[in-house]
Amino acid sequence: MNRQMAQKLAARLPQILLAVVALVLMARTDRFFTPTTLGSILKLASIVGVLAAGQTFALIGGGFDLSQGAALGLVAAATAWLSTQGVPAPALVVFALGLGAFLGSINGVFVATARTNAFVTTLSTLLIFRGTTFALLNGHPIANVRVFRLLDEGLTLGTTLVAWRSVVFLSFVGIAWVILRRTVFGQHLYATGGNAEAARLAGIRTSYVKVASFALSGMSAGLAAVLLLSWVRLAKPDTGTGYELDAIAACVVGGVSLQGGAGSVIGAAFGCLLLQSLGTLITMSRFPDEYRNLVTGAVILTFAATDALARRSDRR
């Protein structure tokens, strides 16, 4: 067992080194390991973090969700509009989650029953959701959405302020973990992603499982829309553009397999935090922000490559 562990660790060496280098860099940066900085990283990571947790469901089930960002935009627009009609916040939260889940399940139904490819399906719905958002807003942003302003605050732990958004993010990850690891549905999801035909023959209703996984991914977009509105208080036609890519990147860095059937939501959350830390690090070290993409891309590729190599050495 110990030898096995050692070999597994050795295979992950580049990843571990990278994490260590990042930590050292952070330690050398002034005022990085302060509650304020860390708190702000957690807060900044929360929106993409929620999306990444939702994306984890889609990925583990053998799917892929490119429409998250667009769903976020559509939910944000619809919710913002309802808020101008005086609908109270709790009802809006329920509405946002429900609409997100509904949008996600559209993806799920196509993938599970019509068997369209997940990539193509969610690419199409990305365009459809984005177009609908534009139509709904008539091209004009809705500004000054203040219903969720309570969420923009936080709770004080000792001397530091933990943003409610961070609390929501961590709780959502916790719930996702429980669903994946401690429910029959979670187990069925892993099996479906690992080998859908075998799962079906083991008596698992793989179509329901797939639809549910996409619905959860969509629901996370709904939740992310609420968090975003609480922060920017603005719904634009292009709100959330590209967020799905950040979420997928976080999953990859966190070791969630794009092949389906493997990975954990905790990993995805860590991936998101690592990417956000690096971003903050770059900003703080006064590098131009343009370097952010470069570094992020390199990090993702490193993680994906080590993962693939580790898998290959497993086989040899």
């Binding site: 892993y190 035909e197 075998a198």
Partner: peptide, 8 residues
């Protein structure tokens, strides 16, 4: 093909 879940 139709029995085992390789990832589990």
């Amino acid at each position: 093909r139709s029995g085992l879940i390789p990832t589990l």
